[in-house]
Design a protein around this nucleic acid. Structure first.
Lengths: 170, 170
DNA sequence: ATTAGCATGTTACCTTATAACGTTCGCGAC
DNA sequence: GTCGCGAACGTTATAAGGTAACATGCTAAT
């Protein structure tokens, strides 16, 4: 059940950090960090990988929250809107955000083997992209940058797929 | 019905160019550029914007091809696999590729107003991204880069949405 | 107490995508 | 020639992702 981040890290800390910074953020702006929203973010942070809305929904349902799609989509919409989570377009899935608050132009590194997702800074790449686009007269408002490949763990031949939780090699 | 490219261009040429280069490519590799595949590409090139699979399917169906989803998804899979078309993840939609063959690390500029999609070179941004990822030990295999914003046409206040074909401003 | 706003829940439905299976056609082996 | 094969196409059925619309309950302001 090891939560596959790219490197060893104190997962408890990164989970609780994500939550407390969401709490703070909401408090200072009068936003309601309600139980579903909180729990949804907790699950995302705990799993530390991209999860489909319906996977989340199943968990929420089992825990006594509503079990219909709008429940989870609304929670996700809130989390994404305020930067506590991100949608991975490539996967139609969601990840919790580990760098709370901050300036946030994230790019994602998606391991095709174990589904782990890491967030990295996209600012430089964004700038370049903005320039290129500018030459064409296009004004960029936001950009999706998602790289797919192999994470450090999965590059070691000894780790063709971390225990049972990995994807089929297909 | 003006096919909204970002700037004026000889649309006929870009259409027929796309087709003939696909024909060539397929010929030299013994690939079958069948009627459905050809027609699917023609439609994409003609429209010159991102189209949903089901939009395409409707057209194909009306023209006497099969009218069930797998028909269009298979054609698209072929076109995408060989680089004749691309999927825009952000939109769950597809565009014809105008730079046939070539080396191809495309980034997309998506106008949120009129749905026009332009392709631009992503190589420099890719390189940057690859470096950043490398620092984290991640090996990038491919990347999705999709910028959303306003195309030159839609930046002019006079063009809040090109005639009837545009999106609702919402 | 009344009203307004927002969050939650539900039902019903739409869109996007794939699995599984049968048929047809072209082609090389025999 | 015809047998067997692989590739493409077609179908039915169903999975997976996402939203519209409406009812209920809480809280906060008047």
């Amino acid at each position: 059940m090891k939560p596959v981040g790219f490197h060893q890290h104190d997962h408890e800390t990164c989970k609780s950090g994500g939550i407390t910074s969401a709490v703070d953020y909401c408090e200072t702006r009068g936003l309601q960090f309600t139980p579903v929203r909180r729990r949804t973010l907790e699950i995302l942070l705990h799993e530390h990988r991209a999860m489909g809305a319906y996977d989340l929904l199943e968990v929420l349902g089992r825990e006594g929250f509503g079990s219909q799609p709008p429940v989870v989509y609304r929670a996700l919409e809130f989390l994404v809107r305020h930067g506590f989570a991100h949608k991975i377009e490539r996967l139609n899935a969601f990840v919790g955000c580990v760098h709370p608050g901050a300036d946030h132009a994230p790019a994602f590194l998606i391991c095709r083997q174990c589904d782990a997702v890491a967030e990295t800074r996209a600012r430089p790449a964004m700038a370049l992209l903005g320039d290129l686009a500018g030459e064409a007269g296009f004004r960029v408002e936001r950009a999706v940058i998602e790289a797919e490949g192999l994470c450090p763990n999965c590059q070691e031949p000894a780790n063709p797929g971390p225990e049972s939780r990995g994807k089929d090699p297909k």
